[in-house]
Simulated scan of single mutants.
Amino acid sequence: MTTYALQTRNLVKKFGGFVATNDVSLNVEAGARHALIGPNGAGKTTLINLLTGFLEPTSGEVILNGDTVTHLAQHQRVKRGLARTFQINRLFAELTVLESVTMAVNERIGIGARFWRPVGAYAEAVDEAASLLSTLRLLDLAHEKTRNLAYGKQRLIEIALALAMKPRVLLLDEPAAGVPTSESRELFETIAALPRDVTILLIEHDMDLVFRFADCISVLVSGALLTGGTPDEIANNPKVKEVYLGEAISV
């Protein structure tokens, strides 16, 4: 029996007379590396905003690990195991890598607001942060300030901050945006190596990276799902070639 980590049922979002998300029913299997692709203006980020609670749907449902979360606030969805990154990173430039991730761990366990205690005063949080950095191949940069790092590394730190929330589902909104090609492959190799107990839903425009990373792809066009399937099925789908990928795509 297939287990789904994240689902939508007939999800609709309207802005006045404009339909941004049109009757989207999406199933993301637990443990999947699932990519959401489509041309500019297809509604991908709107859909992510609906999944995370940043936007309220006009109608339809969002289901996380079998529970309906359609009307829960963003922080409530985080507590239930949903985390995301953004197209533009949101890092504390003057903190070190380890300080940044430790602060995120402290926030999750409820001591982040105790600002009178120095970051790192809680040994278990520091150990957890260091372990997470090791998983993401960042431990050797633990004491570097984030502003000094290459952009690809900064994107990985943002992912580390999301993973510090211990999500069961991680939403990545264009993680390679602005990352030089020389760094993007390493970025995706690191993401792909994450444990499969974290389900990943990814938006990405670089089709080479998508086809290397994803085991399932959904195609969104004009706010509606056109089709979904394996990378081979998507690459050879005539409708996908016509509306988005073109004839040159291959895997």
Rank of each mutant, 00 (worst) to 15 (best):
H205F: 06
I157S: 08
F15H: 08
A142V: 02
T190Q: 12
G246C: 07
A73T: 01
K14S: 09
V221Q: 13
G38Y: 03
D197A: 03
T2A: 07
P175L: 06
I249N: 04
L170S: 01
L149V: 05
F211H: 07
I109W: 12
W116K: 11
A193V: 03
R155M: 09
G246N: 05
A224F: 01
F211K: 09
R155D: 09
A32Y: 03
T68H: 08
A123E: 15
P57E: 04
L161I: 13
S184L: 12
A20T: 02
R114P: 04
M1G: 14
F115Y: 14
R117A: 13
M103K: 10
A130D: 13
R33L: 05
A20H: 08
V169Q: 00
V219F: 02
V119L: 15
L64D: 01
I249Y: 09
W116I: 14
G38E: 09
N27G: 01
T2N: 05
L156T: 12
I203R: 02
N237H: 09
E189V: 05
A193T: 07
T181H: 15
E183M: 13
D208A: 15
E29S: 11
D173A: 04
N10F: 00
L132K: 02
W116N: 12
F213M: 11
V240G: 03
E158H: 05
K145W: 05
M207C: 09
E94L: 10
G38I: 10
R185I: 15
A176C: 12
T102S: 10
A5C: 01
V126A: 14
